[in-house]
Design a protein around this nucleic acid. Structure first.
Lengths: 218, 218
DNA sequence: GTCTATATGGCGATAGAC
DNA sequence: GTCTATCGCCATATAGAC
């Protein structure tokens, strides 16, 4: 689109929309950053505004309240944090490969989002109802899921394992070193960041091996 | 001590002291209760006062600030949460027995204090410096601890295992189902409290078996 | 030591100019 | 849409009577 001075212009609505999106995105990015580190209770609207390079009033203009802004962040984060397990099960890989793939991609995710575990743990304990959405949208039928995992397990010559305990084990082993970072880093490695990172990078291999040894028959 | 009417009485100072202790203990109990559920950020001095059956002003009379009161609670809780691992190693039990004993007593502790994991995780992430004390007083020399565990492991004909990873694994498997209670209970058991409790009571056995299979050679 | 009343500050939220 | 200024509340903390 070109005006009478031959300058390219865009329809006003589009310009508005782009500006809006830009600001809204800046807010969402900033809120994501702050909420993930501090959680709902610890975060301050002022800090989010600073991080986004705007002021508090604008936050309320785009999202009516802190609670609403938080919910927007929580919903997207929660989706990311619940990998679709059925997707892993559907492929025609061996059980061992499926488990490896799941562990590897999950720890990958956590290394890119180290604050994710505590963010979710804090919120689901603060407000357990916040889980209801995800249950409906993502894990539609848990009963069915564990049934499927159970069937997959029985196809293999391994120890009898409760699917729920197995899943909890895999997630626990993956998540804990991130959630307990200060503990692991300070107490186990004398606050040596490098040593802690090294520990994390060994983790994928360790968890995979650990899980397989725990279910494989001699 | 007897007065002129032959009634037993106590010196005023002692009476004062007892009253003081009673109130102080009531405060500590109440603070323990509230802080463990809500954490430093989520707790309210009013709620602690109500729980103790006194008013807010008294809290500040006994402990100067919320922060100081919290520190008092955190210190005692942290001590409880760090079992003396060397104690378990010192006995002349087999490795398997030592591991079993540790897991069993630790999960026992968590069942009696289900809020303990999240309380500690939240606080060490909010204020990592809070760990410094415990490091000095309890886990004096981590290097030494893992050296000792490593030696113990090498005495047995098992897979080569990094003591740090093994310890993290044991704690992760024990702690996670408590820290992630809403997740496990709602998502895995359709919010069936009984089923979740049943799951927890199976946990000791599961974790023990899991650990042993993962380190035992065929 | 314990209470009521109040000061003080911070934070979420809104009003209103531009 | 964005800003400055301000309201109103709530939580920690203190003053002061008893």
């Amino acid at each position: 689109m070109v005006n009478k001075f031959n300058q390219t212009v865009k329809p006003t609505r589009l310009i508005m929309k782009e500006i809006k999106d830009k600001t809204e995105d800046k807010i969402l990015d900033a809120a994501h950053e702050v909420f993930l580190r501090k959680g709902m209770d610890g975060a301050r609207m002022q800090e989010i505004a600073d991080e986004a390079g705007i002021n508090k009033a604008l936050l309320h203009y785009y999202f009516r309240s802190k609670e609403k802004l938080f919910e927007a962040i929580f919903a997207t984060v929660l989706k990311k944090a619940f990998p679709n397990i059925l997707k892993f099960l559907a492929s025609d890989l061996t059980l061992e490969q499926k488990v490896d793939l799941f562990i590897e991609s999950y720890i990958d995710l956590l290394q890119k989002n180290p604050y994710l575990p505590m963010f979710i743990l804090k919120e689901i304990n603060r407000n357990p109802e916040s889980l209801a959405d995800i249950i409906r949208s993502k894990v539609e039928d848990p009963e069915q899921l564990f049934e499927t995992i159970g069937n997959e397990l029985r196809k293999n010559d391994i120890f009898e394992v409760d699917p729920r305990h197995l899943l909890v084990n895999i997630i626990a082993l993956s998540v804990f070193p991130f959630a307990a970072r200060p503990l692991v880093q300070q107490v186990m490695f004398g606050n040596d960041k490098k040593a802690y990172q090294q520990f994390l990078s060994e983790r994928k291999q360790v968890v995979k091996q650990f899980i397989h040894r725990s279910i494989s028959k001699p």
